[in-house]
């Protein structure tokens, strides 16, 4: 299959900070690549380079057949971008925003207008079409922004954290919209720090950290790579933490993860193991608030790859967060 988006050895530095450190990407036609990583991993830098907003220090990239460095103008005709911050003009109405974007894609006066009407209808914004975008809710702005990326019916779309900061309901709605788009054959590169989002939307996932790929595969493939299931135990009191850890460490096939009073252990053997764990915990006198057995999520994948939790909402450089620690299995 044809790669619509391909990048080779992308490097971008800001002074001493290495944002991208030799990133390769390829997205075959009609598929969705999820670029997954914590804040500061280099996701937005990668998107900015592929959408011609930034020039890489080294490396090369082609989008829909055009070189992003040699012929950025050609690339811009063939891409749609929807960023982390809704890139809409808040003083313009929804219609005026989309009409303006159509004109700037050089669709012509008539086509721009009809396309704007069409998209407002499709994104359930027709009722708000003639209201300034600043009166829109967060979810409506995101939909308008996404509609902006679709105005020209381009072959490749870049969605940079499309649901960051949205409430769960708007997020689910937006996922539906994105799935619908992809079913029409658009090639999509999606960045996200939400495992669930990548799991829901992406055919192929590249996990990056510190500007480098650390894993690559399908959601199922990555989960299988991590393997097994997870036992999650929440304790009633901090006092029995040591006992609980000792018991779980005996059954764990990897590192324990401790967060507050919850201990998570990767295990094999499923329900049978759970029964045994519970028996031991009981005999140690450990009082439980909650217990569960679950299949690994992409969160677990990220955790086992990097030793860190992915879904951090702050912009601090990824690193030592004292409230979240991993511990070697004993």
């Amino acid at each position: 299959m044809n790669d619509i988006i391909e990048a080779r050895g992308l490097v971008k530095k800001y002074g001493d900070v290495v944002a991208l450190d030799g990133l390769d990407l390829s997205v075959p036609e009609g598929t969705v690549l999820g670029l997954l990583g914590p804040n500061g991993a280099g996701k937005t830098t990668a998107v900015n380079i592929l959408t011609t907003l930034l020039v890489p220090d080294s490396g090369s990239a082609r989008v829909a057949g055009a070189d992003v460095i040699e012929s950025p103008g050609e690339v811009r005709k063939r891409i749609g971008l929807s960023g982390q911050y809704a890139a809409v003009d808040e003083h313009l109405t929804g219609f005026e925003n989309l009409d303006m974007i159509g004109r700037l894609y050089h669709l012509g006066r008539k086509r721009s207008k009809s396309r704007a009407r069409e998209l407002l209808e499709r994104f359930d914004l027709a009722g708000a079409a003639d209201r300034p975008a600043k009166t829109y809710s967060g979810g409506m702005r995101r939909r308008l922004d996404l509609a902006g990326a679709l105005v020209a019916e381009v072959p490749s779309l870049f969605l940079d954290g499309p649901t960051t900061g949205l409430d769960p309901r708007s997020r689910t709605e937006l996922w539906g919209t994105i799935r619908d788009l992809v079913s029409r054959g658009t090639t999509l590169l999606l960045t996200t720090q939400y495992m669930e989002e990548a799991d829901q939307l992406a055919d192929d996932i590249v996990v990056i950290d510190h500007g480098r790929e650390i894993a690559h595969g399908t959601a199922d493939g990555l989960k299988a790579m991590v393997g097994g299931e997870r036992i999650e135990v929440s304790l009633q009191s901090e006092a029995s933490m040591d006992d609980a850890q000792r018991v779980l460490a005996r059954f764990a096939v990897g590192e324990l993860h401790i967060e507050g009073r919850t201990v998570t252990a990767p295990v094999s053997g499923g329900a049978q193991t759970l029964t045994e764990v519970l028996r031991f915990l009981d005999s140690e006198g450990v009082k439980l608030a909650d217990v569960g057995l679950r299949r690994p999520t992409l969160d677990d994948v990220f955790l086992s790859l990097t030793g860190r939790v992915a879904e951090s909402e702050n912009d601090d450089p990824p690193g030592n967060d004292p409230s979240k620690t991993t511990q070697e299995a004993l």
Binding site: R76, D89, L104
Partner: peptide
């Protein structure tokens, strides 16, 4: 909006 403009042809 400037990022939008800069990504448009």
């Amino acid at each position: 909006i400037i990022d939008r403009f800069r990504s448009l042809p």
